[in-house]
Design a protein around this nucleic acid. Sequence first.
DNA 1: GGATAAAGTGGACCGTAGGTCAAGTTGGAC
DNA 2: GTCCAACTTGACCTACGGTCCACTTTATCC
Lengths: 215, 215
Amino acid sequence: MAEARPERADAARNRRAILRATEELLARHRPDQISMEQIAAAAGVGKGTVFHRFGSRMGLMVELMRERAYALEGAVTTGPPPLGPGAPPEERLMAFLDAIVDVVGRNKGLLAALGHAATAAPRPAREQGEHRDEAGGEHPLHRFWHGHISALITARRPDLDGELLAHILLGSIQSEPVLRLLERGETSRLAASLRAVAAGVLAAPASGDPPGTSA
Amino acid sequence: MAEARPERADAARNRRAILRATEELLARHRPDQISMEQIAAAAGVGKGTVFHRFGSRMGLMVELMRERAYALEGAVTTGPPPLGPGAPPEERLMAFLDAIVDVVGRNKGLLAALGHAATAAPRPAREQGEHRDEAGGEHPLHRFWHGHISALITARRPDLDGELLAHILLGSIQSEPVLRLLERGETSRLAASLRAVAAGVLAAPASGDPPGTSA
DNA sequence: GGATAAAGTGGACCGTAGGTCAAGTTGGAC
DNA sequence: GTCCAACTTGACCTACGGTCCACTTTATCC
């Protein structure tokens, strides 16, 4: 993992400038109003540089998000309870949900941009074929979050579909209406309801699907 | 509501052709791979006609979705229980969630397209300013769904934040990973977990948010 | 069976955005 | 000081959503 050729000084400077400029623009404008060219201009570099460093719009956004969520990941894997290891699963889950709401709340624009990038990104220019593989966008952040939630749920309730429930929990935070709520600052309201949902799920009686539904 | 000038025969024919063609394409390709021009070509009309009839990509998608979900809306407002009025709220909620999962499952592509359209749509061409009002896309379908779920939750548990919970429930179905699940045909798996979530929420103890969270 | 006006149609056209590339510049190891 | 690989750049390419308007079709009215 130690890069033999670390990164040239100017490259590092530009990378940071681009990241900074993106943050700045994201804070002031709707994400789909921000073009890569604007970002380049704001960072004081050429458009080519942006693409050279980050590959695509999606790449840039993912990088930014990774940077932002880095602390949370650390707190979860090596920090003190209840976020970190040590506390019982349900407490960790609650704490983690709170933390995620917090991160998402402070990064709604970026989240939206990620969503936007996911759909708008991969135009291979020349050579566009059918062979776009199944795995859509799924930024690594999401991976970690999902894995963690999923593990916590399963730890407490192995009888439930933790995998899916984690997707449901996470998905709900990323939906447009909820993001809009966050934009209006109702962070704690969301956190409370999410807790309620999670608590309800963990406390639910052994799952038995009543009959009469789809195949 | 009765249109004095109903719609010319050729217009009606083309409208249907366009809708049909869109369905067809949606069934075979990823939604963001489908351009309006392709749709027009597949329908055997000019691009201008498509825009004339539906206004924008978003308009077309919404129309298609409306068509698809029309039956469900009818079943809910005037049909027999448990979907229609008459059954107790929790039963109606469960039935409705099942129904939505079903509709969404049979229209994942379209759903994704709606999302895509929502972000990619409104480029005012000339005259682009900052004045994009708060209300994002929010197709009417979603409105109805949300209202219904929200009402059912509130009916049963006025102490909970039905509004938000409805958004959470709905949002979860629209997230990418869940959509992908549906694409793999795991409809009943999703329905089961959604039921579990809803049941948990309705059964949850009176909400008291434990202290210590964000402002 | 025309005449006529409203409705509908099509496709060239526009602006913009993401992404590419080949030629030039620069950092830094020796 | 030399040299090469990494880096930078901005003109350029392609594609898309959406607009426009000259032209065709439909339906109505006499």
